[in-house]
Simulated assay, not measured.
Amino acid sequence: MFNFFNSVPSISTQELEAKLGSKPIIFDVRTQSEYQAGHIFQAKHLSSNQINQFNKKQMEPVYVICQSGMRSKQAVKKLRVQGVDAINIRGGMNQWTGSVKRGK
């Protein structure tokens, strides 16, 4: 009934930044306006509707970020149910200290 103890795989923003050279797949699940205000250069915008319809099997992990880590945690749960190796970014963009891209 309650999923208090179901942990979601996660990494810190610093760990993600260290992986950027290997060009990981990053999904940003914030609103379109939040995304356009500033996002990680390699991140692709993925709305909550797209998460529910996402059925592409990935051979490599996908990293999911939002503003604080809460929406991305929920998105990771949904993606993992669909068989995607999804990993949450703890702290989200609030903790991101790397460069950001503005706009689309």
Rank of each mutant, 00 (worst) to 15 (best):
V29M: 08
G21I: 03
M70I: 11
E60V: 13
E60Y: 04
G38I: 06
V76K: 04
L20M: 10
N3Y: 10
S68A: 13
K101G: 00
L46C: 06
L16P: 08
Q53T: 13
K104E: 12
R71I: 01
S12I: 09
R80M: 11
E34C: 09
V81P: 00
K44G: 05
S7N: 13
D28E: 08
L46P: 02
I87A: 09
S68E: 07
I11E: 08
Q74T: 09
H39G: 04
Y35L: 08
M70C: 00
K77G: 07
T97L: 12
G69Q: 07
F5A: 11
S10Q: 15
K57S: 14
K56N: 07
E34R: 12
I65L: 06
E60D: 13
P24L: 01
Q67C: 01
N3Q: 11
G21D: 12
V100W: 01
V100G: 01
F27H: 06
E15F: 02
E60C: 00
S68L: 05
D28Q: 10
G38N: 06
Q58L: 13
C66Q: 04
S10C: 10
K78W: 02
R90W: 00
K101Y: 04
Q95K: 14
E60G: 01
A18E: 13
F2T: 12
Q14P: 02
I26W: 04
Q82H: 15
P9I: 05
I87Y: 02
S7F: 02
G103E: 11
I89M: 06
G103V: 00
H39C: 09
P24F: 03
I87F: 08
G91T: 10
C66V: 03
S33W: 02
M70W: 02
F2E: 13
R102W: 00
F4L: 15
E34D: 15
A18Q: 14
A75E: 06
P9W: 09
Q74F: 04
D28Y: 05
K19L: 15
F2P: 07
R71W: 01
S10G: 11
S33K: 13
I40H: 04
I87H: 06
V29D: 10
R90G: 00
V62R: 04
N49A: 03
Q36G: 00
G92Y: 05
V100P: 01
I11N: 04
I65G: 07
I25L: 14
